[in-house]
Each structure stands twice: as C-alpha cells, then as structure tokens.
Write a protein that binds this DNA or RNA. Structure first.
Length: 329
DNA sequence: AAACAGTGCAACCGCTCTGAC
DNA sequence: TGTCAGAGCGGTTGCACTGTT
C-alpha cells in the first residue's frame, strides 16, 4: 500500500497557467484561504493537480511576492545565507521577504553559482577551489611560499599538491621538504591558532602541524571541508596579512587592489565570543561591484534569528569607493 | 532576414521529511 | 505505530527571449 497520489492525473491540465486559471485560484483562496490543496482544484473549478495549485500560489500568485531582478543586497544575502544554510532554499527565502524558494533556487543555479565558479569558488562549500583555477600560474607566482602551500593542502587533492611540492623542490625551496615529508608520511600534523599566526608572520613551521577546522558549519563538507579562511581571519591577524591571503587563495586580488586595501580599507576585528562559528567565506564570496554597499553582513538578516549560529559582525570591511572592481567580475 | 545556440525562468516530477491524527 | 496531507528539495523540462553567425 503506497501512498495514494495527490490527485488523479488523468484529465488534469499541465503546463503554463492561464489568466483565467490564476483568477479562479486567487478568488477561491481569497474566500477560503490556502488550505486543503487536494480538494481545492475541484472546489475552485480548476482542472489542475492540488500540488500544482499550491506551487502556483506559493511561487507566483501570493500577494506578497516580489517580482523583478534581485538587488545586490538580496544577492549578497543569498550568498551569505547559503554559506550557512546550504541548499535550504525555504530557509533562505524566509529571510528574503517577497522571494520564493523556487525563485531563489533558480537564481542561484543560473546566476550566482556560475559567477562563483568563475571566481574559483566552490558554490557548495563557498571555499576557494584552486582546481578551478590555473595551477601553473599559481606555481609560477612569486607570492607562492610555504604558508600558501599549507593552504593548498586543504584545497587540492593530495596528488596535485604532491606535484606542486615536487615542482617547488626543484626550485630549491628548502621549506618544502618539511611539508613534503609530512605529506609522504600521510600525517595529520596539528598546530594551534597562535602557531598558525607564527607561520603567517614568520614563515616558521612546527615539526608536526595541522590546520584545524574551527568552523563547525563546515566540518561535514567532505574533502573540501577544511576551512582555511576561518583560520586566516583569526582575530589577531593584521589587515595586510588578510589582504595578502585574499590573493593567495584564489580570490584574484590584484597587486593594485591589495595596495588599495592596505592603504584605504580597514578590517575591524570585533571582540566576539562566537568567532569560531563565523565563516569568512561568505564575505569573501560576496560579489564585488563598482559601487558596493557597506560590507556589513548585518543587512543579511531580516529577523535576526540566525545570529545565534552565525556571527555576522565579526569583521567590518570597508572598501574605498575609488577602488575599481571591474577586473574581478 | 533566417537559422541557430545560449540563457533565463516558470513549472513539473519524484522523492523525502514532518507533523497531525 | 501507521497513514496521510502538506511542505520542501534536487533535478529536469519546455518555452520564450536574446545574441550570434
């Protein structure tokens, strides 16, 4: 005994809704309210499946539906919420007044997802994916050093990283031996956040280390789960360190932009007890525009209900208006 | 101008999950 | 505990529109 179908599909109309059907549905719901979808088509005189009526109402006819293009703020909100909630489109839609889950899903798949991929960002994990980028150009970059390779360990599959290390070894990079040895022994070296900072600043590496994932939201995200950014943006890191790492890990920050950031922008580390829950990925993956709104992610949360699990104001990042982002779009 | 390819989006399908009964 | 309706999700389809050749 399986579940009975929601409707008898024989003789029921499919495809685009006509204006007359819409009017029937609207008038019926205005009188009786949106309930008992199974019986609604019959009572409303519609040759439609109840589920089709429900979807038509919730995705198109509802009076509070907002039509038209997504604003920058809405897009930013979607990206940030998706970095926390994943593909829970209804949960995302609940925080975007007037937008439906289906609309957001479509917009994600047709616009945002493609742009994130072009930016070298995994749209699933919101982590930079160097396998989307040109590895050879990275290896030839004068900025490639030990700390950046430590993050490559998180972003590349082991074989790709081994190849990278071999190439660096050929370039007489003595530090690479340490990392290569660790990889060959398949160790899971561990280090603490303050040690990580030492690495960033002093290029020193403990004998055995591991980048610890401090973001619980990303612990279950498979092979790309180790989150570099949650470590990169620990509270005590200097802005220039952050700026340098922006470009190291695939965000395409040019030298000009990095200089502008160093000179004119400010990362404000906020004292917060929820820093471990914050993922900077959402901010990083936020699309840049020629006239960006304030990068304070507070604007992303309509009702504030998510703030308990997502520290939205850990950092405030101000981008000077004179900065030209066209190169990065 | 016509043919074709690419894109965006509404709508659908099949399935799972959840809560009420 | 099982059944059912509603809700939600991922994936897909079909069509209109737009850009390119």
């Amino acid at each position: 005994m399986g579940r009975s179908p929601c409707c008898d599909k024989n003789g029921l109309k499919k495809g685009p809704w006509t204006q007359e059907e819409d009017m029937k549905l609207i008038q019926y719901i205005q009188i009786h309210g949106p309930a008992n979808w199974r019986n609604l088509p019959k009572n409303a005189g519609l040759q439609r499946c109840g589920k089709s009526c429900r979807l038509r109402w919730t995705n198109y006819l509802r009076p509070d539906i907002k039509r038209g293009r997504f604003s920058f703020e809405e897009e930013e909100t979607i990206i940030q919420l998706h970095s926390v909630l994943g593909n829970k489109w209804s949960a995302i839609a609940a925080r975007l007044p007037g937008r439906t889950d289906n609309e957001i899903k479509n917009y994600w798949n047709t616009h945002i997802r493609k742009r994130l991929l072009r930016m070298g960002i995994d749209p699933v994990t919101h982590a930079p994916r160097l396998d989307f980028l040109d590895l050879s150009s990275l290896l030839n970059s004068p900025q490639l050093n030990l700390s950046s390779l430590l993050h490559l360990q998180n972003l590349l599959n082991p074989e790709a990283l081994r190849l990278s290390m071999n190439l660096m070894s050929a370039n007489n990079n003595q530090n690479s031996d340490i990392l290569l040895q660790s990889l060959q022994q398949n160790q899971s070296p561990v280090f603490l956040p303050n040690q990580f900072e030492n690495i960033i600043h002093n290029q020193q590496i403990p004998p055995n280390f591991q980048i610890q994932n401090t973001n619980p939201m990303q612990e279950n995200m498979g092979q790309f789960s180790t989150n570099s950014s949650s470590l990169i943006f620990q509270e005590n890191l200097a802005p220039n360190t952050i700026n340098n790492n922006l470009s190291k890990y695939g965000y395409g920050i040019s030298d000009q932009m990095r200089n502008d950031l160093s000179e004119n922008s400010s990362f404000q580390s906020m004292n917060s007890s929820c820093s471990n829950n914050f993922s900077f990925d959402s901010v990083l993956s936020t699309p840049l525009s020629s006239s960006p709104p304030p990068m304070n992610s507070d604007s992303a949360f309509i009702n504030g209900s998510i703030e308990e699990e997502f520290c939205s104001d850990l950092f405030k990042f101000e981008i000077p208006e004179s900065l030209n982002f066209d190169d990065f779009m």
